[in-house]
Design a protein around this nucleic acid. Sequence first.
DNA 1: AATTAATTTTAGACTAATCTAAAAATATAT
DNA 2: ATATATTTTTAGATTAGTCTAAAATTAATT
Lengths: 222, 222
Amino acid sequence: MLLTLTEENYLKAIYHLSEDGSTVVSTNAIADKIETKASSVTDMLKKLAEKNLITHIKYKGVTLTETGRRTAINIVRKHRLWEVFLVEKLNFSWDEVHDVAEQLEHIKSPKLIKELDAFLEFPTHDPHGDPIPNANGKIKQTKKIILSNAQNNINYACVGVIDSSSEFLKYLDKHNISIGTSLKVIDKEKFDLSMTIVIGDKTMVMSQAITSNIYVKAHNGQ
Amino acid sequence: MLLTLTEENYLKAIYHLSEDGSTVVSTNAIADKIETKASSVTDMLKKLAEKNLITHIKYKGVTLTETGRRTAINIVRKHRLWEVFLVEKLNFSWDEVHDVAEQLEHIKSPKLIKELDAFLEFPTHDPHGDPIPNANGKIKQTKKIILSNAQNNINYACVGVIDSSSEFLKYLDKHNISIGTSLKVIDKEKFDLSMTIVIGDKTMVMSQAITSNIYVKAHNGQ
DNA sequence: AATTAATTTTAGACTAATCTAAAAATATAT
DNA sequence: ATATATTTTTAGATTAGTCTAAAATTAATT
């Protein structure tokens, strides 16, 4: 089925708001995400329900159908593959990629994505540490945890922070830690709960004050 | 100035119909190219003239303004860079690239194109042998000539054929010659006008019956 | 439970891009 | 040079997506 750019953006928004694709999403939540008015959303929901991409119960909310979810995941897949391309091949930094990937995700060509995936050597995660759905729409969902609860010897990607004070962000910047940074815990000190962490080719020790303010996600790839 | 996808396509069509950007283009010619109706074209011409991208004299035709020409050339630049990317990095064949490049050319990100250009090592020609305008809109216009009139020791790209019988196309296919193929004449026999030609790492002799049916364009790059 | 507040939907209008059919201008042919 | 044909423009309608304002429904509060 051929969808317009706008329809694709609605599906993606609904998907992200429910993540698993089954939770009920409200009209206002979509309006906020898309940055449009609730009345516009209602109109579009009619169209998407008509095409069997969503189930819409008046005044109650929306869920994706199986087709809708598949379609949304495919857009997410394309978005994340393009992000990898931009960062790994075209020297974009992780905070510059989003707007461009937002455009590129709507390009229609199955061959393009198949070949891009191969060209990038089948990446499993995007530069922000989010998993890339495979060609069949399967997605390894790993939920974010706090670094202080992380296990030893597993690869994690930094996906966010709790404390967003400029002092803390400066600390992260100083040690070259940003969204997407890969890290591995190799030891946790029982006495003060400080952790020994490997980032790239560097090893450092972080106090519990630090590790309890960083969100990470497990990831296998790279 | 931010243009819609449709406006960009009209500018590109007008550019291609005039090539140098100065020849007057008719409403019907544009309608044919865009595959739309003449009345739709007239409407759009008003919009583009309003924005100072074209000069439109009623019932007389259209030319690009300097701004319009610059804009059109930038789209052509993006189109051709993407074509190189698709062929060189993603294993597309020259006849598969057009539809995808047609979509990719509208992605808006100056950094993307700057970095893509560098990633591809500043190509000068696309896979069809057409020149890629540089970042300032300068374009090396080389007009196509018949291979039999080509000079020795200059790089050419095959850009078309005169005889399009299936026998002739089979001959080209057999010898791996297609649109975009690079070749160089190293000798021309005075007696029968046959030419010795280098294609990739192979050297072959072509009779005048062949060389007088192939269009080529000089190109420096690659 | 009744009133108030918030959310969602409907109704009607707007813009961009397109179309058909008819009118206006230009080009061609006798 | 006048009639005919072709090209181009105008007028009015249509679709996708959006908006504001008002009505309908659901949720929250006293």
